[in-house]
Design a protein around this nucleic acid. Structure first.
Lengths: 205, 205, 205, 205
DNA sequence: GATGAATGAGTATTCATTCAT
DNA sequence: CATGAATGAATACTCATTCAT
C-alpha cells in the first residue's frame, strides 16, 4: 500500500504499515503510539517527527484511500459504460463487483479502519460524504438512467434502485471479505447468483 | 431499555444508561469510566462495585441485547409462518422489516455499540455467532424452504437467498436508521419498493 | 503557610508545600510534576486529582498571597494612620517597613515565585494589577495627601513620592531578605538610616 | 547587540538574536531549541554546532552583558568624577541615570533574561557577584567618599548611601522601562524629582 | 451500598541532543 | 559548515481500579 509511494523514508513506510495494521486490528483509540513505534521498529519520537499527532497519522492513512482510490475507479467505470463497453446492466454490475472485490481484497485493513473510525471523526465523515456521497452517487444515477432509457431496467426512482443494488452488493462483499474472510465461498458462482437475484428477484414466475 | 429490569438499583440503571450512551457516541475505548460516573451522577467507585471492570460493563450492556432480543423475535416470526399467518414470502419479509425497524429504532445506541465493538472483543464475537449464526440462520433456512416448497420462490440454494435478502434488508435498515438517521425517507413506500426489487428484480420484462 | 488551612487533606498540604519550595528554588517551568510528587510523597496522579493542571497548582499557591495578604495589611495601616496612630510620616514608613519585613521573612519562597513568574502568566499579572495597582495605590495616595495636608512632607505630586519611597523601601527589603538573605545586616540601624535618607536626603546642609 | 561582533557568521547572529528574544519573552526553561531554530531560520542541529548545549547558549548571551557592559561604563563614570567632570553629587547621579537608562532601553530583553535566570544558574550568580559586587561596588564607594570629602553629602556609612541611592535609582529605572514599558512618563521631569528626593528627602523644612 | 481520595502504570507528545549525509 | 532525521528520556496529564471510611 505505502511501499509504492516514492518520497517516503523507510521509517515512514514502516510507521504507516504498523499503524494501519494495529488500527485495523484493535481500533484507533485502543492502539497506543508506543505500540506503533515498537512494531515499526522506530523510536516513539520518530512518529511525531513525521505526523504531528496520532490523529494526523490516522488521517494520513485513511484520506488517500477515500480520495484517490474510490473516486477514480468509479469514474473509470462510468466511462466504460458510456463507451458502451458494458452493453447490459448485468455486465456493469458484474464489472463493478469484480472491481470492488479486487479493491477490498487488497485493502482490508484500510477498509476496516474506515468503517470503524468514520462515525467518530468528523473530518473523515466530511471527506466520505464529499467524495462518495456526491461524486459517486451522481455518476451512478447517470448509469441507471442510461440503462432505463435503453429499456433494460424498470422505471423506478433511480435512487431507490441504487440504494437496493449498492447496499446488496456492498454488504455482500463486506460480509464475504471483511467480516468473514475465513469462509470459503465459490466466488464466481455466488456472484452470478447475486446478480440473478438482483435482476430477476426471488419470486418464481 | 434498562428501566424495565427489576432487580437493578436506580444507580445501576443510571450507570448502564450513561455507559450505553457514551459507548455509542464515542466508542468503548475512548470512553472513560470517570466520564460514565459523572454522567450517571455516581461516584467512580460505584461503577466497580457493580461491574468488576469496564469490559464487564460493556458485556453487561451488550449481551442481553443479543441473547434476549434477537433470538426470540425470530422464533416468533417463524412460528407465525408455520401457523400460516404469512401466506406469501413478501408478507413475511414485510413483517420482518417492520419488526426489525422497530427494534432498531428503539435500540440505536446499542446497535451502534455492537457494530463498533464486535470486531475487537472475542467474547462478543462468540456470542454473536452462537446466537445469530446458528439459531437464526437455521430457522430462516426453514422458512425459505417452506416457501420454495409452496412454489413461491425460486429453486436456488436457500443460503444464497438468505444472504442476498438479509444483507439487503439489514443494510437498508442500517443505512436508514443507524448511519443516516437524520434523513427523512418515505418509509412505507421505500419498503414496498425494496420488497418489489427483491421479489421481481430490477430487470424489465 | 498551608498548614493552617483547615479543609485541606494532609496530601494536599504536602503537595502545596513541595510545589512552593520547588517553584521557588528552580522556577515553575523547570519543575516537573513528578518531582513535586516525589518530594510530597504522593503519587503523580494525586496532584491532578486536586489541581487540574500544573498551572492551576501555581495559581493556587500564588493567588491567596496576593489577594489575602497584601490587600488587608495595607488597609489596616491606612486605618491606623487615619486613627492618628502614626503622627509622623516617618512613623508610618517605619511601621510599613516592619510590617513588610515580617511578611517577606515568612513568605520568601512565595515572593520569589511571584517575582519570577509574574511576567510569564497573564492571569497573575491581571491579579497583581487589580489587587495592588488599584486598591493599594489609591490608599497610599490618600496617606501621602494626609501628611502633605499636615505640612509634614513636600508638595510634590503624590504619585512621584509614592514611587520613590515605595521603590526604595521594597527594593531595600528585597535585596536584604530575598536576594541576599545570607548577609547579616544590623536591621534596625539600617532601617533608621533608610528612613533618614528618605526624609532628609543625602545632601548635606 | 550581536550584529556588531565580527567573528560571528550570519547564522550565529540569527541564533543569538532569536534565543535572546525568546528567553526574554517566555523564560529560559520554557523556550525550546526547536523554537529558537525555527525563529532563527536554521536547522535544529546548527544550534548545537555552535553552542554545545542550551545552557551554553544562555551563558553566551548573558555573559558579555555583565562582563563587557557593566564594568567598563562604571569605570568611565568614576574617571569622569575624578577628572572633575561632575562637580556635584547630583550631576553624578544624573549622569549615571542617563547612562543606565540608555543601557536599559537598548538591552531590555537581555536585562529581562538576567533578572529572570540569575537565581537559577550558579554560574551566572558567580559572574554577577564578581563583576558587580566587587568591582563596581568598590568604585562607587570611592565616589561617595570623594563627595563626602568635598562636604557635599552626609557623613553616613558609604555602603548605606550606595544601597539607598542605587536601589532607588535601579528600581526606578526597572519599573519605568522593564516592568511597565508601556507607560508614558515625563522622563526628564521625573528624573529631576527623583534626584531631588534623594538629595533633600521628602520631609518639609 | 456508596463514596471519592489515592494510586501507578500508561498516554500522547515534546525535548535537547546526536550523527550520517 | 549545515542539515534534519532519529532518538529515548522526560513531560504533563489520564486511566481503570482499589480501598479505607
Amino acid at each position: 500500500m505505502f511501499t509504492e509511494d516514492q518520497n517516503l523514508t523507510e521509517k515512514q513506510k514502516g510507521i504507516l504499515a504498523a499503524a494501519t495494521e494495529l488500527f485495523a486490528e484493535k481500533g484507533y483509540a485502543a492502539t497506543s503510539t508506543s505500540e506503533i513505534a515498537r512494531k515499526a521498529g522506530v523510536a516513539e519520537g520518530t512518529i511525531f517527527r513525521h505526523y504531528k499527532s496520532k490523529k494526523d497519522l490516522l488521517l494520513t492513512i485513511v484520506s488517500p484511500t477515500m480520495i484517490k482510490v474510490i473516486g477514480p475507479t468509479v469514474k473509470k467505470d462510468i466511462n466504460k459504460v458510456l463507451d458502451k463497453e458494458y452493453s447490459t446492466f448485468q455486465d456493469f454490475i458484474r464489472a463493478m463487483i469484480a472491481n470492488r472485490i479486487d479493491f477490498v481484497k487488497n485493502n482490508i485493513p484500510l477498509i476496516r479502519i474506515v468503517i470503524q473510525e468514520l462515525p467518530f471523526h468528523d473530518e473523515l465523515k466530511k471527506q466520505a460524504i464529499e467524495h462518495i456521497g456526491k461524486d459517486v452517487f451522481e455518476k451512478l444515477r447517470a448509469i441507471v438512467q442510461y440503462f432505463q432509457a435503453k429499456g433494460q431496467i424498470i422505471e423506478m426512482h433511480p435512487d431507490t434502485i441504487i440504494r437496493v443494488v449498492a447496499s446488496s452488493v456492498l454488504s455482500y462483499i463486506f460480509t464475504s471479505y471483511v467480516i468473514f474472510p475465513e469462509n470459503e465461498w465459490n466466488e464466481e458462482e455466488e456472484i452470478e447468483r447475486l446478480i440473478e437475484v438482483l435482476s430477476n428477484g426471488v419470486a418464481k414466475r
